[in-house]
Design a protein around this nucleic acid. Structure first.
Length: 702
DNA sequence: CAGTGAGCGAGCTTCCGCTTGACTT
């Protein structure tokens, strides 16, 4: 206790305020004892949540308040400032960071009138960069702050006008916004394409040849001088009939060399995409794990921040990190160290406040620290480490051997092709394990050369259907949003979450599927606000913000141009559009077990359910019966346990009947009386089956 | 491969973008 008191009475220090506490710890180490580094944890001052708080008749003046729950932290910073003789605002070097600094300056100087407060900025957390920043304090860039204000006000005006319109016309609690509604639109439009897609049958034809002791398969690539278009089995049979007695020889063998360059280190969006595609992580999970790696993991007793900041739009790498990784490559794979470092360029709209996502120290290889991480942390760390180290290694070389095989008889103009690819120079692939290229199908090139005579063993015709467009996964929607410049690294994952929370979209096999409600909302928004719920709207906004930031235009002017016509339309739709509240409720022939009135099917937060039409006098609800329980005769209803959906008996726990297969409503098995379900397996696709394991009606193994 | 299990409607809800815990929703 006594020691603490003594410590408090020391000389004044410089207070540095950053956004992230993990960053504060690192920077404090770099700056030494005369600096005290604190974190603001993002915005402390913002618009209130409960009302519009924009004075639309007075130059759109925003009314800012201390964010709920942040008053204590702000007070602390104010009192820390009082104890200091100088404050350096070191929030991130981007639009939002400038606004955070501006709000802090106002709030701190209000309590400490003569305190010198300045702004510093840096784009990487290295001792050199931090010291240079501290040595060159500047003032706050008001134009940048104005651009942020315009962005904030615009989003508030869009969100807080469109959402209440939806409450009034469709259902309470709904939402719309510049970013989420475009994401919803993308998902719904993709679904329309899928609905409209008609699969077409086509066939491929392969021939299996024997050469010496091996046999291999080659694919028909040309027939009568043209690319074969086999629509039906008969088309394939016509060719096999013509060729069945032909003598085949190898006409040509070609070598193609390719250079494969490593990919740049991760941005947030690339990290989420790769983690989704390679590891099956949702965006949310990726970000949670990345946060853990960033904040620090105990390695040999000491906590180490393993990766740089995970919310970034940049692929930039600090000189210190380049020296580190080149040193590591030079020691471990000297042959793969390029003469000079690779330089990658970030996207057009990148604000570039942070480096790429990379390991903080290359010496912590995934293998080295595998015991300090859990399985998922290790997998995520591995892809970050591998991608970064590979990005500074030499390219790989591949050689593809490709042979054309034709009948001796030139009248039978058919070409079958077989190919195989070998990596001739490993290059950056030497460090890829988790990210190693997936095995290519087809396998090795058979050891054949020009002029070899081959024996035809058999033909292998295969039926296929053209595939429609795929639904968006987390990876897909994040990729598209980023390409269109919509949303930021900190919002990709939350945007997906909000669509799920509102019930606009659900996740099925990692795919995002729009719900009835989602499609309805999308249609309404596109019909009346198609120019706002649109990628071009954000692009136009960014152009406007650039003008504001360059002081070419005042921010209220920019907002006014948008808001005037927008508000007219909001009012118009509010007046003219018929309310469809309750349109999603369907009448049913079920009767309420409590009062006997009919029940209606309603769409709630967790999906459809049955409610008494006598609401609010009778509050009875129940789940939608999907089938009759074969054990006790009760209703089978949909349930959700830890994320997974299943179908169980309402009489649980007395009756524990349960299945994961979707009951086909009202379909009883004609043989045993149990109910039929939709099953799925690779061979048969989706198909009907009886739920009774002892019944052989439509029996299937899985 | 085992084990999984509530309530939602109305009730002032909602935006985007910064940032972490505090949680028993």
């Amino acid at each position: 206790m006594a020691v603490k008191t003594v410590k408090k009475i020391n000389k004044k220090k410089t207070l540095v305020i950053v956004e992230s506490p993990a960053k504060a710890r690192t920077i404090e180490k770099y700056l030494g004892p005369s600096y005290r580094v604190k974190a603001s944890m993002g915005h402390l001052i913002d618009l209130p949540k409960s009302r519009l708080a924009i004075d639309v008749d007075n130059n759109f003046e925003p009314e800012y308040i201390t964010v709920r729950g942040r008053a204590k932290l702000l007070k602390e910073l104010q009192s820390d400032a009082k104890k200091s003789d100088e404050v350096l605002l070191a929030s991130d070097n981007d639009r939002e960071g400038e606004a955070i600094a501006w709000h802090l300056q106002k709030a701190l100087s209000a309590k400490n009138e003569n305190l010198p407060i300045s702004r510093i900025s840096f784009n990487e957390i290295t001792p050199q960069a931090i010291k240079a920043a501290v040595a060159a304090p500047t003032s706050i860039d008001d134009a940048k702050v104005n651009a942020q204000k315009a962005r904030r006000v615009l989003d508030r005006l869009v969100g807080y006008n469109l959402s209440p319109l939806l409450w009034k016309k469709v259902k309470n609690g709904l939402s719309a916004g510049r970013v989420q509604s475009v994401a919803l639109r993308l998902i719904c439009e993709r679904e329309k394409e899928i609905d409209a897609f008609i699969p077409e049958e086509y066939w491929t034809l392969a021939a299996v040849f024997k050469f010496e002791k091996t046999s291999f398969s080659a694919t028909l690539v040309s027939w009568k001088g043209e690319k074969p278009e086999l629509r039906t089995e008969a088309d394939a049979q016509e060719i096999t009939a013509a060729l069945k007695d032909a003598a085949f020889t190898v006409k040509d063998v070609r070598e193609t060399y390719r250079t494969l360059h490593p990919r740049p280190p991760f941005t947030t969006s690339q990290l989420q995409q790769t983690a989704a595609n390679r590891l099956g992580f949702t965006s949310k999970k990726t970000m949670q794990l990345a946060q853990q790696l960033y904040e620090g993991v105990s390695i040999g007793g000491a906590p180490i921040g393993l990766i740089t900041y995970m919310r970034t739009d940049s692929v930039r790498i600090s000189q210190a990190a380049l020296d580190d990784v080149r040193g590591w490559i030079g020691r471990n794979h000297p042959g793969e160290l390029p003469g000079k470092a690779a330089v990658y360029s970030s996207g057009k709209q990148a604000q570039d406040a942070h480096e790429a996502v990379r390991p903080t120290y290359v010496k912590y290889t995934p293998d080295e620290i595998k015991d300090s991480l859990n399985r998922d942390q290790l997998r995520l760390y591995s892809i970050i480490w591998e991608r970064f180290v590979a990005s500074q290694m030499k390219a790989a070389q591949t050689c593809t051997l490709s042979a054309d095989i034709s009948p001796e008889d030139p009248a039978l103009a058919a070409v079958f092709r077989v190919s195989g690819t070998n990596v001739t120079e490993q290059g950056f692939m030497k460090v890829l394990k988790t990210l190693a290229p997936k095995e290519e199908k087809g396998g090795l090139f058979p050891g054949i050369k020009r002029g070899d005579e081959l024996k035809l063993k058999r033909f292998n015709p295969e039926q296929h259907f053209t595939q429609g467009p795929a639904r968006f996964t987390d990876a897909g929607i994040v990729k598209t949003l980023e390409e269109k410049g919509i949303g930021r690294p900190s919002t990709y994952a939350p945007t997906i979450s909000v669509l799920l929370d509102r019930g606009y979209v659900s996740r099925a096999n990692k795919q995002l599927v729009p719900s009835v409600l989602g499609r309805l909302i999308c249609n309404i928004l596109v019909e009346h606000f198609g120019d706002v719920v649109n990628a071009d709207f954000t692009a136009g906004m960014e152009t406007g913000l650039d003008e504001v930031e360059g002081s070419a235009r005042s921010w209220p002017d920019m907002i006014r141009d948008f808001y005037k016509p927008f508000k007219v339309r909001v009012d118009e739709v509010g007046k003219k559009m018929e309310s469809i509240k309750g349109v999603l409720d369907e009448k049913t022939d079920q009767l309420c077990g409590k009062c006997g009135r009919p029940m209606v099917k309603k769409l709630g937060r967790y999906g459809y359910f049955l409610a008494c039409s006598g609401f609010p006098e009778c509050r009875n609800t129940k789940s939608i019966p999907l089938a009759k329980c074969p054990k006790c005769g009760g209703d089978i209803v949909a349930r959700r346990g830890r994320g997974k959906k299943f179908y169980g008996c309402v009489n649980y726990p007395e009756c524990d009947f349960l299945t994961h297969h979707l009951p086909l409503s009202g379909q009883a098995c004609p043989k045993c009386g149990w109910f039929l379900v939709e099953k799925y397996d690779k061979r048969n696709g989706p198909h009907k089956a009886c739920i009774n394991p002892d019944c052989d009606y439509l029996h299937s193994e899985d």
